[in-house]
Design a protein around this nucleic acid. Sequence first.
DNA 1: TATAAAAGTGAGTAATTGCTTGCAATTATA
DNA 2: TATAATTGCAAGCAATTACTCACTTTTATA
Lengths: 202, 202
Amino acid sequence: MGKPSEQRKQEIIDATLDLAASLGVKKVTTQAIADHVGIAQPTVFRHFKTRDAIFVAAISSIGEGLFRNLAAFFSGTGPADERLHQLVRAQLRFISQNKGLPRLLFSDRLHLESPLLKQAVQKIMNGYTQQVSRMIREGQAAGLMRANLDAEECACLVAALIQGLVMRWSIFDFDFDLAAEAEPLWGFIAAALLVDGEGAVL
Amino acid sequence: MGKPSEQRKQEIIDATLDLAASLGVKKVTTQAIADHVGIAQPTVFRHFKTRDAIFVAAISSIGEGLFRNLAAFFSGTGPADERLHQLVRAQLRFISQNKGLPRLLFSDRLHLESPLLKQAVQKIMNGYTQQVSRMIREGQAAGLMRANLDAEECACLVAALIQGLVMRWSIFDFDFDLAAEAEPLWGFIAAALLVDGEGAVL
DNA sequence: TATAAAAGTGAGTAATTGCTTGCAATTATA
DNA sequence: TATAATTGCAAGCAATTACTCACTTTTATA
């Protein structure tokens, strides 16, 4: 009967993310996945009904991984500004170790071909901005962040900053240290959000 | 002899951008381009050696269009902060009218398949951040922007903000008014960069 | 108007690739 | 051990698609 289904599924997902990182989404054919896992190509379809379903599962898997990594900062107990700082750092670190994420994020498979895949990403992004805007409101309530800011709008822009940075990283072939960008990035965000932000050093 | 080559080339480029905007890059087949222009599919290859060459030409064309739209703000005579504000506004307006740009930008064709295409984009991005960092240095010299900021780093982050916003726009099916985001976006940038930024209303 | 070059096309090729099918091997369980 | 379910695979189908070729039509120009 071969390996149990759940284990194989995860192997297929991992192979997909590995291959996406190194080859790009387009080249992640079901044959390539099968070779990487070490099974025959039709066997892939024993575990996923369609190729798209594999990508949806991969996005969900990596999304869950990201949230598991960031959950501590979303709901921690320290001051909101420090938690946001740590969040940015942890997020860039996580992404720099999961290059499959930007590959999937910037694929046209996501952008028009697969509504399901897009929905999965929209869900992740909405969850993220919701958590960040909550943190910003906490920071405002504590007098740490400027009260005249629209928390939700700011959360979107913080997300945009990170995504834009990741996109630059992807376009430039992952050839700079993404995690190292956390500090100047935080300098920028702090300057924009914090009450005493004008003193930030970038 | 049919239409002169230069004119047909532009028609093919325009068709490519139109189709990319409405269908996504993957579905821009040479057949679809030919249909859209009103010629036979092999005729496309009279004007471009390969399909990739069409995409490279399309990116270059839209990049030139963008710079033509922004040139006035790069080298204007007014205060640097006002020019940057207008730049952001003009850029979002231009992109919102050229949806083919994000489609190409977020395609995996760009991200791994076609080194030439990626090079074209890298060139555009480098030119952009160079101009913006020059503006920021002008703003610093005029005492408008915080002197302790690294102009180049800030320029990258401004670019990242816009790209991230455009990406969000693309992922959410172009379903909000991108141009309208210019003002809150500028509020955020102003808060981060300007000497009196702490008073900015977002 | 004659000519050559360029633009255009119908028909076809080769390669890729998602997915199916019929059948064999393996394993859980009764 | 017998049975049923699941996992696995070799072979192949059907569709797509970038690109070629032999040939015709159009146009510039000498």
